[in-house]
Amino acid sequence: MFKIFKYSFFDLIRSRWTYIYAGFYFLFTLGMLMLSSDLSKVVISSMNVVLILCPLIATMFGVMYYYNSREFTELLLSQPIKRTSIFTGQFLGLATSLSVSLLVGAGIPFLMFGVFGSDQAGNFLVLLFNGVVLSFIFAAISFFIALKNEDKIKGFGLAILVWLLLAVVYDGLLLLGLSWFRDYPLEKASLIASVLNPIDLSRVMLLLKLDISALMSLTGAVYRKFLGSGVGMAISVAVLLIWTIIPTLGIRRVCLRRDF
């Protein structure tokens, strides 16, 4: 598996798209840091971008990489290598290269501006952690979808649909539900709802870190109590891990049944 991972990773890390992706983060973060001396504000702006881009780009890269590397995959399949190793290795290579793009692109400007000497070091690390986790989750989901669908267009469409559901539609439904039942105490319900969606969970973790919880008054207090506690933090990280593990297991399961 490690060898497959290595080849996928180095194949991707040399790709033009990886440079464009990392370059975008680099220029964006550098630009923000030069415009604003306030690190916490740049962390917030980066958060907005990371929460949208990481899932979206991971989704698109995941599908594209699967379909574009079918030749390579077929070559590997005829070799004495375990199937699960091939696909897990490819997925890990993909997710790692995406994460490296993020870490290098967004990380270097922050380091240049001395983030670790500031009070934003913790927030910055939480931001990167969430970006990496989201990259893994959405790379796994899209890779799984591509693996399930021979048809490129269908696979691409489904993957984007899943992204849309989690990034946009979910929040719309949540908002609808909250305003529908607004006469009931909803702090716990909204907490559970946002913990279940990895994008929302990442956003809330970051918002609380960035002390916007004050704007959320009672809801914020409930969230803060939950995510501030060891158990709550453990649950959040567990949820993110489950979101990564389930599609990864799905990849392993489907790849064993697929014909090539």
């Binding site: 990034a167 949540l174 908002l175 946002s194 929302d200 956003r203 959320m216 008054s217 809801t219």
Partner: peptide, 20 residues
């Protein structure tokens, strides 16, 4: 406006849906 009638909706702050 939404938050003033449903304060819990604040959890959606900075979500893509809200921007849209």
């Amino acid at each position: 406006y939404v938050v003033s009638s449903t304060p819990e909706a604040m959890v959606l702050l900075r979500s893509l849906f809200i921007d849209l």
